[in-house]
Amino acid sequence: MVEVKFGDDLPEQIEFENENGVLTSQMIKYEWRPIKCDECGGVGHDGEACRMKKEEVQKERKKLKIKKVWVVKATVPHKVQTAKTSQEAQMGMQEGEVTCGVIDHLLNPLNIEIAAKVIEVNDMTKEKNVSDGQMENGNERAPQGLNSPWKHFHLRKFIQSQNVGLFGYLETRVKTGNFAKVYPRICPNWSIVTSYSAFPGGRIWLVWSPSCFTVDVRMLTEQMIYGVMNHKASGVQFCLSMVYGHNDKEKRSELWNDLIKCSRDVMNTQWVVMGDFNNILNLNERIGQPVLFSEIERFRNCVDSCGLGDAKMTGPFYTWSNKQQEDDYVTTKIDRVLVNGQWELCYPYTEAAFLLEGCYDHCPCIVKIHKELNKRAKPLDSSICGVILKGF
């Protein structure tokens, strides 16, 4: 084993003395190298996706916009009137047909209120929308999460490049009142169900192409959206639970209980559970902080009770890090894809491919169903794949 200081460049070769006392040089080949940022020195993203760099650029742009000009003082007194302006954020929602509990075009049989909220702004309004960016000490804060326009473009590009028909997005940071403004810029012709009715921040978005899928939602909570997915082209039907576990372990107990309820509803159907559980399952799934068995006990009991197991995964093992350096660095595996026995029987060559973080907060995951055990083989149908995306 060769130890390398965190932050140092990985060596291309090492020199050592062999058993005969001869100094030997050995080239090193890496199966995978972590991405290192040239701007901040952090790991898991490159310079283009560096948050620190973007914040500095935005500050510089604001400075450039400020321009002071000397003007001649008017000798004739005059009055300046400030005209009141109003801005309405409206989105025309076309009501789709709902049959047999199928959700289409933002209609929800669970009475989820995701209609557009009209916001009127004038010079007398003192309310501030945090999701659009707020004033801090006189400076406007950059938009957070999916409220940023450049992130709309990046997300659209990512979904198109992966050719998927269904995906889950966690921790969007888009408030209820801003949803009608943000969502049409990302997937204007796609259907969506959100968790706004269970939590004002809308922690989970489940989005799908109506030409590829119909979705029947069976349960919706703050930490999970569960339903039956029907793939139109192939007729494949399966149950899906898109999960975003709470930071508080006591509240996560509600998620474990809800998953057990789902397992009773699934019966003999294929079931996949995917997302950010905010909980590790095994003792070797965190580096930088000690792991206690009490942390994983409830999650393990839940997984065993539901008859779930990890799908075969590729890519980075640890899916999240705190972006700190050296002794403060913590990395862990809290994102995963779990499947039941029926899924394994029907789709034995399922692959949960975790990608590098890039500009996301966690490693994105793409679930693919292969025809046979061959890494070069194309997926059975790329639109059947599911994607987990977590924050920016």
Rank of each mutant, 00 (worst) to 15 (best):
165 G>N: 08
381 D>S: 08
334 I>V: 13
281 L>S: 10
126 K>M: 06
109 P>G: 03
141 R>W: 01
240 L>E: 02
2 V>F: 13
17 E>K: 09
348 P>S: 02
235 G>A: 01
121 V>C: 08
114 I>D: 15
89 A>P: 10
345 L>A: 10
186 I>A: 00
300 R>K: 10
320 W>I: 00
366 I>K: 05
225 I>W: 01
343 W>H: 03
201 G>K: 01
344 E>I: 04
373 L>D: 15
290 P>S: 14
308 L>A: 01
33 R>A: 02
2 V>L: 14
316 P>Y: 03
290 P>Q: 11
138 G>E: 05
163 N>K: 09
197 S>E: 07
93 M>S: 12
172 T>V: 04
153 F>N: 09
10 L>M: 11
335 D>P: 09
217 V>W: 04
207 V>K: 00
109 P>A: 03
200 P>S: 06
358 G>S: 06
181 K>E: 14
226 Y>I: 06
69 V>W: 05
106 L>K: 03
91 M>Y: 12
203 R>N: 00
175 K>G: 06
86 S>G: 11
282 N>P: 04
192 I>H: 01
183 Y>Q: 13
152 H>K: 00
257 N>P: 02
193 V>C: 13
215 V>R: 01
178 N>T: 06
182 V>Y: 03
270 Q>A: 15
391 G>Q: 00
75 T>R: 14
374 N>E: 13
242 M>W: 12
144 Q>W: 11
324 Q>N: 09
116 A>F: 04
18 N>W: 05
139 N>Q: 13
177 G>A: 07
75 T>P: 07
332 T>Q: 12
301 N>M: 10
139 N>M: 11
167 F>K: 00
